[in-house]
Design a protein around this nucleic acid. Sequence first.
DNA 1: GTCTATAGCCAGATAGAC
DNA 2: GTCTATCTGGCTATAGAC
Lengths: 207, 207
Amino acid sequence: MARLSFREQVLRVREDAIVSSVNRLLADKGFDLMTVDEVAADVGIAKASLYKHFASKEALAAAAMVRLLQRTLTEIEAIAARPDCTALQRLDAVTRWALYTQLAGEMPTLPSHNSSLRAELLASKSYLDLLMEVSERLGEWIVQAQADGAIAPELPPEVVLYTVFARACDPVPAFLKAGGRFSDEQIVDWVMHTCLQGLCGPVRSGA
Amino acid sequence: MARLSFREQVLRVREDAIVSSVNRLLADKGFDLMTVDEVAADVGIAKASLYKHFASKEALAAAAMVRLLQRTLTEIEAIAARPDCTALQRLDAVTRWALYTQLAGEMPTLPSHNSSLRAELLASKSYLDLLMEVSERLGEWIVQAQADGAIAPELPPEVVLYTVFARACDPVPAFLKAGGRFSDEQIVDWVMHTCLQGLCGPVRSGA
DNA sequence: GTCTATAGCCAGATAGAC
DNA sequence: GTCTATCTGGCTATAGAC
């Protein structure tokens, strides 16, 4: 019993190493340019061994997305545990976390066009469950922030949710980072500013 | 002389048909999933004939991007010709145009990771020239809008420019459209609202 | 310049020994 | 479960006739 558990633990560690490589490669090159050979080489095992753990390239990507959502949920729970925060501050915190994750090269991005990949994700119960839970947790904060008058009440919560989600694959931070003239902190501050206050910023009396 | 000119015209019409197909397919499936066979079938010619017009798949995509930038410049000039507009209103108009183009399925999107494609684009003088001209035209409006106090002066113009550019590949409109509950006009209005005023909207007195 | 046919290559997936 | 070696399909690109 103990041996079996140990074996399973070894298995999980190896699979976690695989998912880590996939996560990094997805963040770096995207799904289409990532090859299974690369993943195998990065993990340090043979390609055929990969296929003993995951049935397809799509399954690899799905596993990376599941882990991302799990980490997102962990982050959400950590932020939810902070006392004396407004809902807007919590939304701000989770969005900043996503931006820093992206700037660190750890945010896997998937092409929204790829149909085989979409099919795999929509068939994954754990992925869908996690996505729904993340959406619901954020949705509660959004509704609360609107009740507080902190987020524009005329925006449907759906619009707010998608806008927050979209920061995870926003190309602006990477472009600003590529320029090399700004720190990650500065970049995140600006993107958060445009996200919350918009380009026009707080309305000044004369405007 | 007239015959030669006529021949060249026929050639350009055919090439324009090719670029139209590429534009649509790029908007629909993206570069990696678009195959040259599809383009040929869509145009109604043999694949080998395509390669008489364009040297590679990357060249096809580059041609589509050049045409997009040309159309963008045309739109910019039309907006510039409007009398009695503030710089912010012109920026608003061109961004709205990009959003409608995207919702119409006519906005080609390229993967930012693909290196062979990047190389092709960076080697294309007409692409780079057009990109620079579009950036400069928008840059003038941005600086003017900041001088007017309409756009937050603490934002570097670079940040504003990238934020405007990013609307062209913003995933939010497509998600909202996929929901099927909103009109294109409504979607564009919301996205423009979040772009200019942010999620928090105009600061209310109590906030 | 257009076509048919095919070369050449690469990447996802598998066979089968250990 | 791990490996080496291989299969298979699809895609870019080209050869060569007309």
